[in-house]
């Protein structure tokens, strides 16, 4: 399952970042979660059904602002409120996980999405239940920026690929 999810995450990130932000992404296994003390933001969307889990998109606060300005066609010098950044990052998560969900449905694993939620802070980490399968993929974004995607999958009795 984890291999399937890795492939779906890579496809979804490439599609969403390319279409909505005109940002080229490249998976980079050497990149991990951000833990340098800088303010960062995590957007999460869950999926529940034959496959159940949650996807987190981590980025620095400054890159999240750039993402928001790109999505909305705003100048980077314009003041962008935290609420708008949260909403844009939530929508970005919704699109990424929506893309993954559609491919899971097509593979006979129907599921529904949860509404997006946002976590902000300088030092935080997400702890998962011991039984959950965890995967982290880092992406270089136009060379200068990076995001990390963390996927937690709960084992279920549903169909497996």
């Amino acid at each position: 399952m984890i291999e399937v999810m890795e492939e779906l995450v890579k496809g979804a990130v490439s599609e969403v970042f390319g279409t909505m932000l005109s940002i080229k992404t490249k998976p980079d296994k050497s990149l991990t979660l951000i833990s340098n003390g800088d303010p960062h933001i995590a957007s999460s969307v869950g999926f529940i059904g034959d496959v159940t889990g949650v996807v987190f998109i981590y980025s620095t606060d400054s890159f999240a602002r750039l993402i928001t300005s790109r999505m909305l066609g705003l100048r980077t010098s314009e003041a962008i409120g935290e609420e708008l950044v949260n909403d844009s990052m939530g929508e970005l998560g919704n699109m990424v996980v929506g893309h993954i969900k559609s491919r899971l449905c097509d593979r006979g694993m129907p599921c529904v999405l949860t509404i997006p939620s946002i976590v902000r802070g300088s030092q935080f980490s997400i702890e998962a239940a011991a039984s959950a399968t965890r995967m982290v993929i880092g992406f270089r974004c136009d060379a200068a920026e990076q995001v990390a995607i963390e996927v937690l999958i709960k084992p279920t009795d549903g169909p497996q690929p």
């Binding site: 969900k101 559609s102 491919r103 449905c105 129907p110 999405l113």
Partner: peptide, 9 residues
Amino acid sequence: LTAEAGREQ
């Protein structure tokens, strides 16, 4: 307008 593009959807 939807983020969910599965055939069923």
